[in-house]
C-alpha cells in the first residue's frame, strides 16, 4: 500500500485488548468482588470437602465401630452420643459427608455427561433425532421422579451403582432440556456453519464450538442439580432404598435416630441428634445455592448499578 499508510493501517486499528492476566489473577479479582453470601458458601463447601477427603484422619472412631452403649448421651467421649447400635454419631456424620457427597458428585457428573451430550447433539441435528430424544425426555419427565426411582430401585436392587445410574438418568432429562436450549442459541451462529462447511465432525463441533460457549449456564446448573441429586439420595436413604447400612449416610442417619426426637422434654441434646445430619444436608444445600447464585449473576452480564 502506498500513500494510505499514513492514515490507515490494519494493525493500527483501535481495539481494546484485555490485559493478559494469569488464571490466578483473574480468579482472585473475581473473588475479591464476591458478596459475603458467596464467601460463606465457598467456606462451607470447602469445609465439607476437607471433611469428606480426610474423614479417616478426622473422625475419632471408625465408620461402623460399635461401642457398648447404644443411645449414649452427649459426652466428652462421644461428642454427639451414639446411635441405636452404639456407633459414634460424630464419626458417622464425618464419614457420611464422604459417602453422600461422593455419590452425589458422581451422579451429577454422569447426568451431565448423558444429558449434556445428547442435548447438544439434538440442538445440532434438529431433525428426527431431536424429536425422538425430546419426546422421550418429555415422557420421562411426566413421571414423578421420586416414585419412579423408588420403583426402579426395587426392580434392579438397591446398591450404589444402581442408585447412581438411575438417579443420573432421571436427572439427565432436565440437563438435556437446558443443554439443548442454550445450544440452540449457539448452533445458529455463523462460526458453527463455517465449521460444518469445513467438514468438521459432529464431535469436534460439539467439543470445540459449542461446549465452550454454553459452559457458564451449564456450570451454574451443575451446582443446582448437585443440590437436588443430593436431596434425592438423602430422601431415598430416609425411605430405606438409598445407601444401605452399615455405610454411613445422612439420610439414613435421620431415619435411624428419628424416634429420639420425642425425647425432647427429657433430654434436649438427645433430641438434637437426628437433626444434626438433617442440618448438615440443609447447610450444604444453602451453601451451594449461594455460590451458584453469585456465579449466575457474574456470568449473566448484569451490571451492578452504582
Amino acid at each position: 500500500m502506498s500513500t494510505d499508510d499514513q492514515t490507515y493501517s490494519a494493525a493500527g486499528e483501535v481495539a481494546s485488548v484485555a490485559e493478559r492476566r494469569t488464571w490466578w489473577d483473574r480468579t482472585w479479582r473475581d473473588l475479591k468482588k464476591a458478596p459475603l453470601t458467596a464467601w460463606f458458601g465457598m467456606i462451607v463447601i470447602s469445609f465439607y470437602f476437607v471433611l469428606a477427603v480426610f474423614a479417616p484422619l478426622i473422625a475419632p472412631y471408625g465408620e461402623s465401630q460399635i461401642f457398648d452403649t447404644p443411645y449414649a448421651p452427649w459426652s466428652s467421649e462421644f461428642w454427639f452420643g451414639t446411635d441405636q447400635l452404639g456407633r459414634d454419631v460424630l464419626s458417622r456424620l464425618i464419614y457420611g459427608a464422604r459417602n453422600t457427597i461422593g455419590i452425589a458428585v458422581a451422579t451429577t457428573a454422569l447426568s451431565f455427561l448423558i444429558g449434556g451430550s445428547l442435548g447438544v447433539m439434538a440442538a445440532i441435528n434438529r431433525s428426527w433425532l431431536d424429536q425422538a430424544l425430546s419426546r422421550f425426555v418429555d415422557v420421562l419427565m411426566a413421571i414423578p421422579s421420586l416414585i419412579f426411582s423408588l420403583m426402579l430401585l426395587s426392580i434392579f436392587g438397591s446398591n450404589v451403582v444402581n442408585l447412581i445410574i438411575i438417579i443420573a438418568v432421571l436427572d439427565a432429562t432436565r440437563v438435556f432440556r437446558l443443554a439443548r436450549a442454550v445450544s440452540l442459541n449457539v448452533v445458529v451462529m455463523d462460526y458453527v456453519e463455517a465449521s460444518r462447511l469445513r467438514g468438521e465432525s459432529l464431535g469436534w463441533v460439539m467439543r470445540r464450538d459449542i461446549l465452550p460457549n454454553i459452559l457458564p449456564p451449564m456450570v451454574a446448573e451443575f451446582g443446582l442439580r448437585f443440590c437436588f441429586v443430593f436431596l434425592t439420595i438423602a430422601s431415598l436413604s430416609f425411605l430405606g432404598v438409598g445407601i444401605q447400612p452399615p455405610t454411613a449416610d445422612w439420610g439414613s442417619m435421620v431415619r435411624e435416630n428419628a424416634q429420639l426426637i420425642s425425647f425432647a422434654e427429657y433430654d434436649m441434646k438427645a433430641a438434637m441428634t437426628p437433626l444434626l445430619p438433617a442440618g448438615a444436608i440443609a447447610l450444604l444445600t444453602v451453601a451451594v445455592n449461594f455460590v451458584v447464585d453469585w456465579f449466575l449473576h457474574k456470568t449473566s452480564g448484569i451490571r451492578d448499578e452504582k
Partner: peptide, 19 residues
C-alpha cells in the same frame, strides 16, 4: 493480511471490526 504475530493469541473480542 497485513497483521503481525502479536495478534496470534488474541481473542476475537480483542480485535477491531476490520481486523
Amino acid at each position: 493480511i497485513e497483521l503481525d504475530d502479536s495478534f496470534m493469541e488474541r481473542l476475537p473480542s480483542e480485535l477491531s471490526g476490520g481486523q
